[in-house]
C-alpha cells in the first residue's frame, strides 16, 4: 500500500491533495489516506482506508508533529511509498519526514512511475524547467506539483480508522501560536480575475497611478515585476513570479515587463496574457496571446479612457420618467 497525506480545509480535501491521490494510484497498490484532525469523505478518490489522526495538541499546525504522525503510521502500515501535495505544508512536512527517515525526497513531481528505481519528472525554476530523475529509495517519498495532474475519480468503499499518535514535547515545540489575517484591502492578487502588472517600463512609483486606475476599472488587482519591488516602487506582496505570488486570472496585462522566465513562472496559469511593450521583440511576446506595441504611458490611459467611454455607451438606459416629469 501507499500512504498519502491529505490536507483539508472547511470539511473538504484541497484539490492538490486530490490530484496527489490520483498520482499515487499509478503505483498500482492500495491507497491509504492520512487526515490530520478530522475526517473528510475520500470515497470518490480510490482510498481504501482513511486514517484520521487525533491528538489533543493538534488544534493548530505543528509540522514536526505531522511528520512524526506520518512516520509512525507508515511504519505501522509498512507503507511502500509516501505521497503529499507539493503545497507549502506538504513540502515542509515531507522534508521533515525525509530528514527523520534519512531518505531522499523528490518534491514537486509532475509524473511518477513505480519501479526500482522509481522514475519521475519534477519541476525546477518554479516550473520553467523540468528534470527527469531516478529515485533510489527503499521507501520513495514524493510530493506532487499542484495543478499538474488532473483529478481522476475512482469510487471505492473507504473505511475510516482512528489513529492516536504518540507525540513528544519536542515534536510539539514548533507550532502555530496565532493566525494573523491580512487586512482586507481590495482584490487578492492570487484570486483576481484580472491582474494589471507593471515592470521597469512603468518608470517610477508615481507611474503606477495609471496601472491602478486600469486595475480598478476592471475590478482587478495590481501586480508587478521584481525590478519594481527591488526599487521600492511597490511592496513585495504585489510581486508576481517564482519568488512572488502565482496568479491565474482570466486576463493578465503585462505593462513594461520583458517576460523573464522567473516572472513567467508566476503568470503561466493566466488564461490569457496581453503584453504592452515598447519592444516588439521582447521575450514576453513569445508568451502572450495579445500584444500592443508602444509606450505604456500613452497606451494604458487610452485603454482606461476607452473603457469609460464604452461603458457610458453600453450603460443601461434610464427607466421611464415618473408621470409628473414628462415633457
Amino acid at each position: 500500500m501507499v500512504l498519502v497525506l491529505v490536507e483539508h480545509a472547511d470539511g473538504k480535501a484541497i484539490d492538490p491533495s486530490l490530484q496527489t491521490l490520483t498520482a499515487a494510484r499509478s503505483f498500482g497498490e492500495a491507497v491509504h489516506g492520512l487526515l490530520i484532525g478530522s475526517s473528510v469523505d475520500l470515497s470518490a478518490h480510490g482510498v481504501a482506508v482513511a486514517h484520521v489522526a487525533q491528538h489533543a495538541s493538534l488544534d493548530s499546525f505543528a509540522p514536526d508533529a505531522w511528520a512524526a504522525i506520518i512516520v509512525q503510521l507508515a511504519d505501522r502500515l509498512k507503507a511502500r511509498a509516501i505521497f503529499a501535495a507539493g503545497t507549502d505544508r506538504g513540502n515542509e512536512v515531507m522534508a521533515r519526514v525525509a530528514a527523520r527517515m534519512q531518505l531522499p525526497l523528490a518534491t514537486n513531481c509532475t509524473a511518477v512511475a513505480t519501479g526500482s528505481p522509481v522514475t519521475l519528472t519534477r519541476q525546477r525554476w518554479g516550473g520553467s524547467l523540468l528534470e527527469e530523475s531516478a529515485l533510489h529509495s527503499p521507501r520513495p517519498l514524493v510530493t506532487v506539483a499542484p495543478h499538474t495532474v488532473a483529478i481522476a475519480l475512482y469510487p471505492a468503499a473507504t473505511t475510516v480508522e482512528e489513529f492516536t499518535p504518540q507525540l513528544t514535547e519536542q515534536e510539539l515545540a514548533v507550532k502555530v501560536l496565532e493566525r494573523v489575517s491580512n487586512k482586507g484591502g481590495g482584490v487578492s492578487l492570487a484570486e483576481a480575475k484580472v491582474v494589471v502588472s507593471g515592470g521597469r517600463g512603468v518608470g517610477s512609483k508615481e507611474g503606477f497611478a495609471i496601472i491602478e486606475d486600469l486595475a480598478s476599472l476592471l475590478g482587478g488587482a495590481v501586480g508587478c515585476s521584481r525590478v519594481v519591488t527591488s526599487a521600492g516602487w511597490r511592496p513585495h506582496s504585489d510581486q508576481v513570479g517564482q519568488t512572488g505570488t502565482k496568479v491565474s486570472p482570466e486576463l493578465y496585462i503585462a505593462c513594461g515587463i520583458s517576460g523573464a522566465t522567473q516572472h513567467m513562472a508566476g503568470c503561466r496559469g493566466a488564461k490569457r496574457i496581453l503584453a504592452i511593450n515598447a519592444d516588439a521583440e521582447a521575450p514576453i511576446m513569445q508568451n502572450a496571446d495579445y500584444a500592443v506595441v508602444g509606450d505604456l504611458k500613452e497606451i494604458v490611459p487610452a485603454i482606461s479612457a476607452e473603457l469609460r467611454k464604452s461603458r457610458a455607451v453600453h450603460a443601461p438606459l434610464p427607466g421611464p420618467l415618473p408621470e409628473g416629469e414628462r415633457g
Binding site: 503584453a275 513569445q286 496571446d289 500584444a291 500592443v292 497606451i299 479612457a305
Partner: peptide, 11 residues
C-alpha cells in the same frame, strides 16, 4: 501574440 495594434490607437 496576436498584435492588437501600436500606440494608444490600439485601445
Amino acid at each position: 501574440a496576436e498584435l492588437l495594434g501600436s500606440g494608444p490607437s490600439a485601445a
